[in-house]
């Protein structure tokens, strides 16, 4: 997983609430056994009409958002399914940071597994950044994870909150599995305790 330290990039606006995982990546792109190459499905039904004509207002079709790495969106971003294809598609397109007033739980967690930083901010801050985002290439935004702050193009600074453990993993690009395996003896101990109190959970072999 790539580290996330600071990021200075164009921010793209997605001024919609309840952007669900089916909108982020529709199911016809879930049939892959790979993690990469999913950008082709990103916002598939938002960015083009049913006959394949690009929707001109959508950020992915606008030259001023070329290379955007930050996405600014409305309430409850990422609601719906657990598909990690949603953050994979964002990442494959180049998005490393999503800013919204709120996120759905599973999507929020899935971001951290993939080096994407989801930032929750109050409405007025999101509104401000949405205005910045609407200025395209003229408005680069800097996200500094270490100091937990966002600097807008006009010099203003917005502070954000993040869980210390998640921050640590993202800053260092740490793989969760590796970290957990360091606790192997604790897991072993748990199992022997549980084997004593709930032996029926240890009775079966694979079929």
């Amino acid at each position: 997983m790539d580290k996330f330290t600071t990021l200075t990039a164009v921010a793209a606006p997605l001024p919609m609430i309840n952007v669900d995982t089916d909108m982020i990546i529709p199911k016809q792109f879930l049939k892959t056994v790979e993690r990469t190459g999913l950008a082709k499905g990103l916002f598939f039904e938002l960015r083009q009409t049913p006959d394949g004509t690009p929707v001109p207002e959508f950020f992915m079709n606008q030259p001023q958002y070329k290379g955007a790495q930050i996405l600014v969106a409305g309430d409850n971003f990422g609601c719906g399914s657990s598909r990690e294809h949603a953050p994979w598609a964002l990442l494959d397109y180049g998005i490393r940071c999503v800013i919204a007033t709120s996120f759905a739980d599973i999507f929020y967690n899935n971001c951290f597994q993939n080096g994407i930083l989801p930032i929750k901010l109050p409405q007025e801050d999101v509104d401000k950044l949405m205005d910045d985002a609407k200025r395209g290439q003229n408005a680069r935004v800097t996200v500094d994870l270490q100091n937990q702050e966002i600097k807008g193009p006009d010099g203003g600074t917005i502070k954000f909150e993040i869980d210390t453990h998640k921050k640590h993993c993202l800053l260092n690009g740490l793989d969760n599995i590796g970290l957990t395996l360091e606790k192997k003896s604790k897991i072993d101990n748990f199992e022997s305790r549980q084997h004593g109190t709930q032996p029926w959970l240890y009775a079966q072999a694979g079929r």
């Binding site: 399914s81 990690e84 597994q113 869980d163 969760n176």
Partner: peptide, 20 residues
């Protein structure tokens, strides 16, 4: 509860999951 694919891998490997 539902989990993402990275978490699926985590559970396969460790039978545990980081949670708050």
């Amino acid at each position: 509860f539902g989990i993402g694919t990275s978490e699926v891998e985590h559970v396969l490997a460790t039978q545990t999951l980081p949670q708050r």
